[in-house]
Simulated scan of single mutants.
Amino acid sequence: MVFSNKKKRNQYKFYFEGSILEEDSNYKYLGIGFNKNLNWDGCRKKRILGGWKGWYALQNRCREAELRNWKASQTLLGLLVLPVILYGCELWASNTSGSQWKQSEQIQKHLITSKFKIKNTVPYEIMLSETGVAPIEAIVMVRLISYLKRIGTMEEGRWSKAVFNDTLCKRKKTWMQQNIKWLSKWNIYLNSCPTNSKEIKAFVMDKFHKWAWGNELARKKKYYITKFNSAYDHHQKAYIRAYISWKAKCIIAQLRTNSHQLHSEIGCWKRPKETWEERVCIFCTSGKVETEKHFILECDVFKDVRDKYNKLLTEGSWYDLFSEDFVERLGPLVSILHRKRADLQKSVRSYVLSHRLC
Rank of each mutant, 00 (worst) to 15 (best):
W40P: 00
N60P: 03
W52T: 04
G50F: 00
W52I: 03
W52K: 04
F34S: 01
G51I: 02
L58C: 07
I48F: 03
R63A: 13
C62P: 06
G31R: 03
D41Q: 09
G31M: 00
K53G: 10
N35V: 13
K46H: 06
K36C: 08
G54S: 06
I32P: 02
G33V: 11
L30C: 04
L58V: 00
K46Y: 02
C43H: 14
K46D: 09
G31F: 02
Y56A: 04
N60V: 06
R47N: 06
R63Y: 05
G54Q: 04
R63N: 14
A65S: 10
K45G: 06
K45Y: 09
I32K: 04
Q59H: 13
G50R: 01
A57I: 13
L30P: 04
W52M: 05
N39H: 04
R61M: 15
K53V: 08
W52Q: 02
D41A: 09
Q59V: 05
R61S: 14
L58F: 03
N35E: 15
R61N: 14
G51C: 02
N60L: 10
C62K: 06
W40D: 03
N39M: 05
G54K: 07
K45Q: 11
G31H: 02
L30Q: 00
L49V: 07
L58G: 05
D41G: 01
A65Y: 11
W40A: 04
C43V: 07
G33D: 11
N35M: 14
N35W: 13
L49H: 08
L38Q: 11
R44H: 12
R44G: 10
K45V: 12
E64S: 11
G31A: 01
L58D: 04
